[in-house]
Write a protein that binds this DNA or RNA. Structure first.
Length: 240
DNA sequence: CGCCAGGCCGTGT
DNA sequence: ACACGGCATGGC
């Protein structure tokens, strides 16, 4: 019989993006005023709700520390104190400081210069920093520096898994992250003329929007706008 | 009160 | 290579 959805995971993911774009509209990500704020936010939001990140960002802003110069003038201990609300401060504060040290030592303290480096070596350089893994590196590349790289996160993993777009590989696996990135690239590769940075930007933002609402650890697929794209493989899932 | 959040890292197998 | 626990705080 004729299936109304394509079977190719990349095409299915593209359809899901289109559906989310219709439902949610433009997301205007990343929620920040400057590229530097994006970078700080990317560190702070690691395994942390954005609401908690906002508390830390407010602390930094009121202390005049939400910019390069301001953060340079803070000690690690002072920084720890300001970002305490978003957790893991003993790791995140030195990590942010290490980023600034790298920026100053290797790029003349210029984020613009940093962004002019070519994507692949730059990604490797970011990954070599403490506290920067795949997702943080890609978030910085895409949202702070405008490079056309997909960002995969826990929500995308859950969604892709639930929709059968990837093999049931466990989380926190480097290969599973790369598989999600590849899948996202494939989803938008049909039009090479398109602005992929913009597409990846919007797609990840939409993924987080739908993920926050319906794909937490206890998912609510019944009301999810992607529910019609689900392909239950079991009868029990069909019921849910 | 207990679980969870827009990950990452060190350690043990 | 991969699984697993620690990291810390605020929301709900």
């Amino acid at each position: 019989m004729m299936r109304r959805n394509p079977t190719d995971p990349a095409r299915r993911l593209r359809r899901m993006h289109d559906q989310l774009a219709r439902v949610y509209g433009p997301q205007h990500w990343w929620p920040a005023e400057t590229p530097f704020e994006v970078i700080v936010g990317a560190y702070l939001t690691q395994n942390t709700s954005w609401k908690a990140v906002e508390l830390s960002l407010a602390n930094l802003r009121s202390g005049g520390a939400l910019n390069l110069e301001g953060l340079r003038s803070l000690s690690v201990d002072q920084l720890q104190d300001l970002i305490r609300p978003s957790g893991f401060h003993s790791r995140k504060a030195p990590a942010i400081k290490a980023f600034i040290a790298m920026l100053d030592a290797e790029f003349g303290g210029s984020i613009q210069r940093l962004g002019k480096a070519s994507t692949s070596p730059l990604r490797d350089r970011l990954l070599a920093l403490p506290g920067v893994g795949s997702e943080t590196a890609d978030a910085i590349l895409l949202y702070a520096l405008g490079h056309p790289v997909p960002v995969a996160d826990e929500y995308l993993r859950r969604i892709a898994l639930r929709h059968g777009l990837v093999n049931p590989v466990p989380a926190k696996n480097r290969k599973s992250y790369e598989a999600l990135v590849q899948l996202t690239r494939n989803a938008f590769s049909s039009d090479p003329e398109a602005n992929h940075a913009q597409l990846f930007n919007e797609f990840h933002a939409l993924t987080v929007a739908v993920g926050k609402a319906f794909c937490r650890k206890t998912p609510d697929c019944a009301h999810c706008p992607l529910a019609s794209d689900l392909r239950p493989s079991t009868k029990t899932e069909r019921k849910a």
